[in-house]
Write a protein that binds this DNA or RNA. Structure first.
Length: 514
RNA sequence: GCGGAAGUAGCUCAAUUGGUAGAGCUCCAGCCUUCCAAGCUGGAGGUUGCGGGUUCGAGACCCGUCUUCCGCUCCA
């Protein structure tokens, strides 16, 4: 048998996701919407269980961490303070020959810079020629300098107007008119200028005016920062403490691909941990370790994880690393752990004019706390779990089965109940077992097709246990329980089923391993 | 965004130089059946991604467009 190529394995995951109702492309009947996906009936369950495990591990297991649920809409100034407005609002242009991308404004400014250099050279030359040289007088009278300066002023004015009017065609025309060439290819074969603002915007209120523009949050973190003092005071939190949150965030990615790995609408699960300045590196190390252990607890295999320490740090961080997971397409970021210093809170202090300080009773002084962030992509985690769990297993006799070895606590259905045959009162007994279990567990019932087929169907969606009612069940009130991964069966009393499942499929079974 | 590949039933795929869109699995209704997808009968499911064009005739050829995967690029 040929080994499955990674590319095929990934395609297999995508088609499995669709075939069994985990993930569908958004608006599929309209040809889909690029890089947007919907979770189907089983995907929604799995995703919910993953989120719940994260939440309990964070909030329920730590008495100094609480959870919030901030709105997606935030005051527009939030994104000025966070740096998102300025940093991600650039007009970009590509050179078709070198395939390099440039910021259009930088290209134009560099061109202006060259003109300014020429002026300086004129000034230098003149300074050598004349004694008692008056540079200012020269600048204001020399014709060549005046011509250059006039050109600069014209370009700047034109560029400013184009940007203010958001006229990207004009920006491109400026580049063409100035005969700016790509430094690498030397060609003037440019694409159109495009504005890549990674934030989605919409307008609040019925009248759309500039002042009403608000953004869909590009990260959930800011909802925690702006609330940190509310939570600290009303929750009587003492540093160190954490605020956790799960929720949607939106980024208008230039290139969004690889199934649900990079989507335009995605869900983050993050926790901001507020600490005393100077202690942040200890907590950074603590969370780095704690979070990896959480991932390892899922049992997907330690070899699937590694740290990637950032050599180049973002402006707000003094330490950062990713926990990477080996996806079918290689090791990629799953979770980020960042020591964000007091950058965010300081920025919000500046922009809001409000003090965001914490009074430390031990030190008897106030300070802006430092922040250590853990931020995991729920959709990425979903993909990591799904792709690691899905196996094509060769069985004796040349048969294969498709089995989704999900951690039982995360599986959409905890158990499926089958009457062995559809007669002799077996369906009725199966129904009564289903009814008694459904209050505590998400369970399925299926009487269609041979029992072998039903086992395989449940294997493919990751149901850890199949409970089969047979003729013996009618006599001694026992059933067989078949294990998904081993395909082994054991006989259990019907009234012991609830305890059996409780011990194996409850989130507690995972939480206890942390 | 650039380059490459692809899109036919829920899934995996056929369809000869352009000549009536098919199969297997799945699904549905039954029959049979005492534990690992394989028996029997019947049935449903398609404007071949979408829109144009060439042609007597297009799933196939041409143009555009959407979507997906791969490489490059980007990624606070």
């Amino acid at each position: 048998m040929n080994p499955i190529k990674p590319e095929d394995a990934f395609k297999n995951i995508i088609s499995h996701s669709k075939e069994y109702g985990f993930i569908f492309q958004s608006s599929e009947i309209y040809d889909g919407l690029s890089a947007v996906y919907d979770y189907g009936q089983l995907g929604a369950e799995l995703k919910k269980n993953i989120r719940e495990y994260w939440w309990q591990a964070m909030v329920q297991m730590h008495n100094n961490i609480v959870g919030i649920d901030a709105a997606i809409f935030m005051h527009p100034t939030t994104w000025k303070a966070s740096g998102h407005v300025d940093a991600f609002n650039d007009p970009l242009i590509d050179n078709k020959d070198s395939k390099k991308r440039y910021r259009a404004d930088v290209l134009i400014e560099e061109h202006i810079g060259k003109l300014e250099d020429k002026i300086e050279k004129e000034v230098e030359k003149a300074a050598k020629r004349f004694e008692n040289f008056d540079a200012n007088l020269f600048r204001s009278t020399n014709q060549r300098v005046l011509d250059y300066q006039k050109k600069i002023d014209e370009i700047e004015a034109r560029f400013k107007n184009a940007l203010n009017a958001n006229n990207l065609e004009e920006v491109k025309q400026i580049i063409l008119d100035l005969e700016i060439v790509c430094p690498i290819s030397g060609s003037r074969n440019w694409t159109d200028v495009r504005q890549f603002n990674l934030m989605f915007s919409t307008s609040m209120g019925s009248v759309s005016e500039d002042s009403n523009t608000i953004y869909l949050r590009p990260e959930t973190a800011q909802g925690i920062f702006v609330n940190y003092l509310n939570v600290q005071k009303t929750g009587r939190m003492k540093i160190p403490f954490g605020i956790a949150q799960t929720g949607k965030a939106f980024r208008n990615e230039i290139v969004a691909r690889q199934f649900i790995f990079r989507m335009r609408e995605f869900e983050q699960m993050e926790m901001q941990f507020f600490v005393k300045p100077g202690t942040e590196m200890e907590w950074y190390a603590y969370w780095k370790n704690t979070r990896l252990n959480w991932h390892l607890s899922l049992g997907l295999g330690a070899e699937k994880y590694r740290y990637h320490d950032h050599a180049k740090l973002a402006h707000y961080a003094n330490a950062a690393c990713d926990i990477e997971h080996r996806f079918p397409f290689g090791f990629k970021e799953l979770e980020g752990i960042h020591s964000r210093t007091d950058f965010d809170l300081k920025q919000h202090e500046t922009f809001s004019g409000k003090k965001l300080q914490y009074f430390d009773p031990e030190l008897n002084q106030s300070y802006v706390p430092y922040v250590v962030e853990t931020s995991v992509g729920l959709d990425r985690l979903f993909l990591a779990i799904l792709s690691s769990a899905l196996k094509e297993e060769a069985l004796e006799g040349g048969d294969t089965r498709s089995v989704l070895s999900l951690p039982p606590a995360l599986a959409p259905y905890k158990a499926a109940i089958f009457p062995l045959v559809k007669k002799d009162g077996l369906p009725e007994l199966a129904e009564s077992i289903y009814t008694s279990l459904k209050f505590d567990f998400n369970v399925a019932i299926d009487e269609k097709d041979t029992v072998g087929k039903r086992y395989r169907r449940q294997d493919a969606i990751g149901t850890p246990y199949c409970i089969t009612v047979d003729h013996q069940s009618l006599e001694d009130k026992t059933v067989t329980v078949r294990h998904r991964d081993t395909m082994q069966q054991e006989r259990i009393a019907i009234n012991a089923l609830s305890d059996f499942l409780q011990q194996r499929v409850h989130l507690k079974s995972l939480l206890k391993t942390l």
